[in-house]
Design a protein around this nucleic acid. Structure first.
Lengths: 208, 208
DNA sequence: AATCTTTGATTGAATGACCAAACAATTTGG
DNA sequence: CCAAATTGTTTGGTCATTCAATCAAAGATT
């Protein structure tokens, strides 16, 4: 049952990498967790890097599924008939939902970011990871902007980068300090965003 | 000249850690960069972790100095006579200025975040690092809120967490992809924040 | 049906390299 | 002469990756 074996190794990699971190996890630890000889892990995955990427993709699957069940796909187009503001609101709700269920994925992802700082193969995976998610936020942002009384000075991409960045930063604070109230922070981000999106037209804007 | 030696080691640690990353840097590499025997690095710093923390604190010094010269201190009180909105605007300008000068510090900091995920000693340094900066943003936020026509639902701490998080997330995107337009993203964050802070009083807010 | 063959899956030990930390020995400066 | 500074080696352990050998199952051949 070769397929099940590969799956078992990826699954063991996920658990082990979450528990101990990339640099503190040895290939033989993952193999042991999978109940398999060290060599077999290399039979299926040439390098530890490949296993890290596979583990993250594997761990993202349920999240992707949850989004698609909510009618959203990371890379697909946004349904044109839907209210963009409703989509934005739903995005923040989903972001809060992630907090409850995907602690392990956060750890793994942030670990990947750290490794990616000095590892080209992982760095490219990181760039793809970020780009996908930022583009997703940007699609919603564009739709919201289209409905604004006074369009913002900033581009949709820049706003999306700021919003995705905030979510990332909030997750980071949560991972680093479980007592941190990430829900409140996401609510604050949502309040700011909504206030911005619904602000009335002004003839002269203050500031220089 | 023991003091200069210690300084030389910290400086070498900074350069080496930025160039190669924590896990790819050996104590002997730092020692070599400092032109010193491996044992001497351990003479001044018991563990590699201590050296990482020291290198970051060392690298933060010029940044702190820049802030203090601008009349701001990370932990001190905010001058009561100043216009809070002006402080907020200046904060975003300083955030943009950091982009130009402190690339190495970003790398080191993000590396520290990664290491901190599974290393208690570093994790505590990370928590302190984040907490200091978030508290700084929160002080400005509190002052801004005091001047708002309609106070926000979210607390100043939650808003500060969202704003600091956004800055962090923007820096991350910049580090991972130098072509990323981080200035535009910070401008977008600033525009959102300012629009939020200056929004007019509303009797009934939409949504629910 | 019985035996040989091939191929992929799997094993576990070996390789070659690395490193943090400890330590004993030496130098320097007061 | 002493204590702090400094050296460079040793220790005791780590690990990713390789590899030769074994195993199982599916055909192929007789």
């Amino acid at each position: 049952m070769p397929d099940q074996t590969k799956e078992r190794i990826v699954d063991a990699a996920y658990r082990t990498l979450v528990r101990r971190g990339y640099h503190e996890t040895a290939m033989k630890d993952i193999a042991a967790e999978a109940g398999v000889a060290p060599g077999l892990a290399h039979y299926y995955f040439e390098t530890k890097e490949d296993l890290l990427v596979a583990a993250i993709e594997h761990a993202c699957e349920p999240l992707m599924k949850a989004w698609e069940e909510a009618g959203v796909s990371l890379s697909g187009p946004m349904p044109e008939d839907a209210d963009p503001m409703m989509f934005a609101r739903m995005g923040f709700e989903l972001a809060k939902a992630e907090l409850k269920s995907y602690g392990g994925l956060f750890l793994l992802t942030f670990d990947m970011f750290g490794v990616g700082l000095h590892n080209p193969k992982i760095a490219s995976a990181v760039r793809t990871f970020i780009e996908e998610r930022r583009a997703f936020v940007a699609r919603i942002t564009r739709a919201v902007i289209a409905g604004m009384a006074e369009p913002p000075l900033a581009s949709a991409d820049a706003i999306a980068a700021a919003i995705w960045g905030s979510l990332h930063g909030i997750y980071l604070q949560k991972v680093m300090n479980p007592a941190f109230d990430a829900e409140a922070a996401i609510d604050a981000l949502g309040e700011m965003t909504m206030a911005f999106a619904t602000r009335p037209r002004t003839t002269s804007r203050e500031g220089g």
